[in-house]
Design a protein around this nucleic acid. Structure first.
Lengths: 212, 212
DNA sequence: CAATCTTGGGTAGCGGTACTATCCAATGTC
DNA sequence: GACATTGGATAGTACCGCTACCCAAGATTG
């Protein structure tokens, strides 16, 4: 399969494919001569994956590159599967959890930390996702959306059942597990977001005109 | 409060505030003289809201402008509260549901449509969110993440309980309701995403070392 | 075998987004 | 009266994700 055929198969222009090759998002094809390389199904899949991560997952190319690298050679030993996933998605911003400076204040933990603790969630208080939750929660406050602890608890219940399903679907084999976790973290979020909007519609309609 | 004080209060540079004023994202202050205007708490809140929608919600400025316009003068009569929310978030891409061309094929509905129907969700088959769900679901397939109907059902269960909470928190008064729905749609997604990642962590840890 | 693609490789440019910097004359402030 | 600040305007910047163009080597077709 030549590059033009790959372009046709994926719906991505030849120029863009060359760009992906240059950027290291797409592995080179088998070189047949100086002006010909052979691409196969793995290239088609890769291109589709890159587009999926970008268009649906909303990742930029730098993050996509890290995600692909993580999948290619997962560094499970060092930080575990979830750690590897998180590091690939955070990039520069990722701080090795042991290296975290002594900024942690056990006397006045953030709202997210208190919430997680109260819930009995066993989470390292240095986990940066806790800061994400604080930021998102604060943003809701700034917008005047009342998200009190009760509502947050209901959300946490729901996400916990989601997480059980997610974890149950992770393969035992480490490399496949990393792949599933990294891609699942990114690509299932949009699925859940769409389902939530649809559920809004359904619930709203059902309240107006209850099902007979 | 002068513009420099507003900048200090919000952590946004004066240059950027001027830019927001120009772009209509921030209402002008009370003009005291040709070189002085007075800003108040409403301006502080507005700036914080704009940053929250951008930084946390990931919206671009054009979308933020539409969201603010929708909140300011909701057009509830025409398309209902959820419709108003959706239109402000979709912008150009929004197609009046009655105007939808006859492209709808009732004989071969998409996977998302079949799924929603099988679930008993009462959703207009022309709802564009169904297409979003199809795209997100397809992206999971393209990535090799197996999301079968069973898993999707579990996700739908979870989002349905989230949606119940969401709908229950919507005020009765129309203008406040539109505000809650539009902002809640955008800003709660990141909260749920963070909770899901934390729940992953918790569930994974609990499986390794079950709670005593 | 010659005319016509097509390819890899490279460089340069483009359109959009979200600011940022600079200048100005009018006006506040000390 | 010296200096800082403001609104208003214009121009410039940095980054991102492509896109366009060029070239010479090599493949394909009539």
């Amino acid at each position: 399969m030549r590059i033009s055929a790959l372009a046709e198969a994926t719906g991505v222009s030849v120029a863009t494919l060359k760009y992906y090759l240059r950027e290291g998002l797409l592995h080179p094809g088998a070189v047949r001569s100086r002006t010909q390389a052979d691409y196969d199904e793995t290239h088609v899949e890769r291109v589709r994956l890159v587009r999926a991560l970008g268009d649906v997952g909303g990742l930029d190319l730098a993050t996509i590159r890290r995600v692909l690298a993580t999948i290619a050679e997962p560094d499970v030993e060092r930080v575990g599967i979830l750690g590897a996933a998180q590091r690939s998605l955070l990039g520069e911003a990722f701080v090795e959890i042991d290296d975290a400076p002594g900024e942690l204040d056990p006397d006045s933990p953030s709202r997210a930390r208190r919430f997680a603790a109260a819930r009995g969630w066993r989470i390292d208080p240095r986990d940066p996702v806790l800061d994400d939750l604080d930021a998102a929660w604060d943003a809701c406050d700034a917008a005047g959306i009342g998200v009190d602890e009760a509502r947050m608890s209901a959300y946490a219940d729901a996400t916990e059942t989601v997480a059980e399903v997610d974890v149950a679907s992770v393969p035992r084999e480490p490399a496949a597990a990393v792949r599933q976790v990294v891609l699942g973290t990114v690509l299932v979020d949009p699925v859940l977001a769409a389902l939530r909007r649809l559920a809004h519609q359904h619930v709203a309609v059902s309240r107006e005109t209850p099902p007979s």
